[in-house]
Design a protein around this nucleic acid. Structure first.
Length: 792
DNA sequence: CAGGTCACCATCCCTCGAGT
DNA sequence: ACTCGAGGGATGGTGACCTG
């Protein structure tokens, strides 16, 4: 176990004061050695005496490592030779015998010349175990390897194959994230250059003139007692948004900082308001240990009394001692003048904060590293942390979608938000975060310089780390507080950045599945459905949709689900109306075809009166118009259902539905809408007027209720012929006997399912039926046009 | 121009208090 | 105990505006 024990304090102080904290131990054919670059850096930054001390100290460890490695490799592969050809400069260190060390980070990156999150004190206090050591062993064969893994390998606990696998796995992850990061940075740079002049005008503080969110921190000089600011800084608006997390020791000083940073024209702000409920996020939560010294102080503040809403986290150390007493207080800022947060394009495209290309498995969980190229440090997060973390992070999602992190989706199928006048003003914004949909999901760690970025998930991870520590310490109180803070952060995150679009990178396939799922939940859209008023079932259905939505939007809520659905319905209705108008005007059929990509996937809504022609908006004070059922369409003489709906069968097409003429229909016609026709026994369309006027033939009476039918997911895109006996009472679907038998057999199995399984089964069946209607079902085609595979 | 978003509004349903 | 109406929440439709 390598620690700083044995290294004199003067050397340590010199080491850390020099700003040098990255070592890299490489393994060559002749054993391990400290890279030449590191040595040079050390030499230039350290006093001679300290330099010698450090090199001796490092050499001791390396010698020890070489010895272990040699023995291990001999035993394992019988192919290694003893270390013989170590360069002179390397052997200098290797030959020395000094106490062992802990290696903090890499120094291999030219872009990295400073920054570390580690503090001297914490390291001095550290009894760091190997497992906690972020030391990197660079093996020519295996690449960079976590010290612990390498030690396990040396000890024979980890075979070469596993070690390679781990390395490869981490490299893949690093590459993925890196790619998105690079794309994001490039885009962000382009955006910044475009809007630089604009931001200069709008942002009096030059430090905030970049259209990104960032973490501003002089991490190289970070001391335990110093303050870290994590601030989200929109730049365009004179009214900006601030989300701050800072480490601090003294409460009073923090409060003073809050006051001193209260310039509204400079400070970012949050000003969200519920449109109807007028709920404003102006709460202020402080978790404040009573001991102001040497205790962890975590403050989460949303909203400020001085009209400067913000979130602040103060933490001296990432630990809370059980003996420490903490309190949590909630402040409501009274009589606050709501400021509208305004966001510009630049802000909507935050700078990518991660540079995973250099991700090393052994790095600290979060390492803040400046990048020369952009003068922007990045934050690295251990890949294993991402893999093991339960917290949904953008990084995980970037692996799943096309678009880079932080950038709005570009795909035509994307539901990428595209800004909005209302949202821009953040005025009377519902508490669903809609108004700030594109606000970067990043915090800005503001200290001095350089600037580094820290995304909310990273903060969450930090907090989680603290929580683990508190848990290990058995400090349930601290754990509770931290969890509260995490929750608070997540809530704030939702309100600040619901991320509806950052992760929905235009995956039409996803939305098709989403709509199929929605279609399989008639209790949500079928006003005639027996469960339409059943809140419990509706809630369950929404929960399923919410779960589905979280595939691309980790923080999705039911509100978001409703909003998405509303968007789809709105656009579908609009498209429907457009087609109807085109048809009414007698335009060419080409002009009457839907162009909405998901139009066909929402055809099931045509069974709803609200999506059919003739429905006019009811005016308050006028007589209430009961919703018409499909069977009531004939009431209004001016609205012929056969002509009303775009894809409603014309009288000519109706003939094709007649049993004697077969039930075949063109594929095209079957695609676009459900076709529930009521046909007289003699083949003529049923006089729906008579039906409803007489009131003696209701759908329910006929034993055929549209909602029930839809409940079985058969209505969608299925041409349905309802025969009616001459006596008007024996109406049955014109199904073949074979179909009826088959349907009954399915029904038996369906009845055996649990409610949740039924929902899923309905969805699956609906999907398959739909794909079948689309002609997409295939056998062993290896194609993925059908979603059948998802259900079988 | 397609699509996303939101304010505003209509409608339905539920709750609750007043009146009978 | 029952009825009735006001108030409010939930849900959905419409139109306008916005972005890319």
């Amino acid at each position: 176990m390598q620690t700083f024990k044995g290294m004199n304090k003067t050397t340590l102080k010199d080491l850390f004061n020099s700003g040098f904290e990255h070592f890299k131990v490489s393994k060559g054919p002749n054993g391990h050695f400290l890279s030449k670059k590191c040595q040079e850096k050390l030499k230039t930054k350290l006093p001679a005496s300290s330099y010698e001390n450090v090199m001796a100290w490092a050499g001791d460890w390396i010698s020890k490592l070489n010895g272990e490695t040699e023995a291990s490799l001999k035993a394992e592969s019988k192919q290694t030779n003893s270390v013989t050809e170590q360069p002179a400069s390397e052997s200098v260190q290797a030959a020395t015998n000094k106490p062992s060390t802990i290696i903090i980070d890499l120094c291999s990156d030219d872009d990295e010349d400073e920054e570390t999150c580690e503090s001297l004190d914490s390291l001095l206090d550290s009894e760091s175990s190997l497992s906690k050591s972020p030391i990197i062993i660079h093996d020519d064969e295996l690449g960079d390897i976590d010290l612990k893994d390498y030690a396990d390998h040396v000890d024979g606990k980890l075979d070469l194959k596993t070690l390679k696998t781990r390395t490869i796995k981490n490299e893949i992850i690093a590459k993925r994230v890196s790619q998105t990061a690079i794309e994001g940075r490039s885009k962000a740079r382009a955006i910044r250059s475009k809007q630089k002049a604009k931001q200069d005008k709008l942002s009096p503080d030059k430090a905030q003139d970049e259209p990104t969110t960032r973490v501003l921190s002089d991490q190289s000089k970070l001391k335990p007692n110093e303050t870290q600011w994590i601030t989200t800084t929109p730049h365009k608006a004179p009214k900006e948004t601030s989300l701050r997390i800072r480490t601090y020791q003294k409460i009073k000083k923090v409060e003073q900082d809050q006051i001193t940073t209260g310039k509204t024209h400079e400070e970012p702000k949050i000003g969200f308001h519920m449109d109807k409920s007028n709920i404003s996020i102006k709460e202020k939560i402080s978790i404040t240990p009573q001991k102001t010294q040497d205790t962890a102080t975590i403050r989460d503040t949303v909203g400020k009394a001085q009209d400067e809403p913000s979130i602040e986290v103060r933490s001296e150390h990432s630990k809370l001692k059980s003996s420490e007493h903490s309190t949590i207080t909630t402040h409501k800022a009274p009589n606050e003048t709501t400021k509208r947060a305004t966001f510009d394009k630049a802000q909507e495209k935050p700078t990518i904060l991660t540079d995973q290309s250099k991700l090393k498995p052994s790095e600290n969980r979060i390492t803040i590293i400046p990048q020369k190229a952009q003068d922007r440090p990045t934050i690295r997060i251990r890949s294993d942390l991402l893999l093991n973390s339960n917290i949904p992070t953008p990084f995980e999602n970037t692996q799943l979608i096309d678009g880079p992190v932080g950038l709005p989706a570009k795909s035509p199928g994307s539901t990428s938000s595209s800004g909005n006048r209302k949202r821009k003003d953040c005025d009377t914004t519902p508490d669903n975060g809609q108004s700030c949909a594109k606000r970067p999901k990043a915090l800005e760690l503001l200290r001095t310089h350089p600037r580094v970025h820290l995304q909310l998930p990273a903060v969450q991870l930090l907090l989680e780390k603290v929580a683990h520590f508190a848990d290990d310490q058995g400090n349930s109180q601290a754990l509770t507080l931290i969890n509260q803070l995490l929750h608070s952060l997540q809530v704030a995150e939702k309100k600040i950045s619901p991320l509806p679009d950052r992760f929905s990178a235009g995956k039409r396939q996803f939305w098709r599945e989403f709509l199929a799922l929605y279609q399989g939940m008639p209790q949500l859209w079928d006003a005639n459905h027996v469960d339409y008023r059943n809140k419990e079932l509706r809630n369950k259905a929404y929960e399923l949709l919410e779960t589905k939505l979280r595939e691309i939007q980790p923080n999705a809520t039911r509100t978001e689900v409703g909003r998405r659905i509303n968007i789809f319905r709105t656009n579908y209705r609009r498209e429907q109306m457009r087609i109807l108008k085109q048809k009414e005007l007698g335009f060419h059929s080409d002009l009457c075809k839907p162009t909405l990509w998901f139009y066909d996937y929402m055809g099931f809504l045509l069974t709803q009166e609200s999506f059919q022609q003739g429905r006019t908006r009811k005016v308050r004070g006028t007589a209430t118009t009961k919703p018409k059922t499909m069977f009531e369409f004939g009431k209004d003489a001016s609205s012929d259902p056969l002509d009303a709906v775009s894809d409603w069968p014309t009288k000519e097409t109706i003939a094709s539905y007649l049993p004697e003429q077969g039930v075949q229909q063109s594929e095209e016609s079957s695609l676009l809408s459900p076709k529930i026709e009521i046909i007289e026994h003699d083949g003529e369309p049923m006089d729906t007027d008579r039906l409803t006027r007489d009131g003696d033939v209701k759908p329910e009476i006929c034993g055929f209720n549209t909602s029930d039918y839809k409940d079985r997911n058969v209505s969608t895109n299925v041409a349905l012929t309802v025969g009616r006996g001459s006596n008007g009472t024996d109406a049955h679907p014109a199904l073949s006997e074979a179909s009826e038998v088959l349907a009954k057999s399915w029904a038996v199995q369906y009845e055996e399912m649990a409610p949740t399984q039924r929902i899923l089964a309905r969805k699956a069946i609906a999907d398959i039926l739909f794909e079948g209607c689309m002609g997409n079902l295939r056998i062993n085609r290896g194609e993925t046009r059908s979603t059948v595979g998802n259900h079988l």
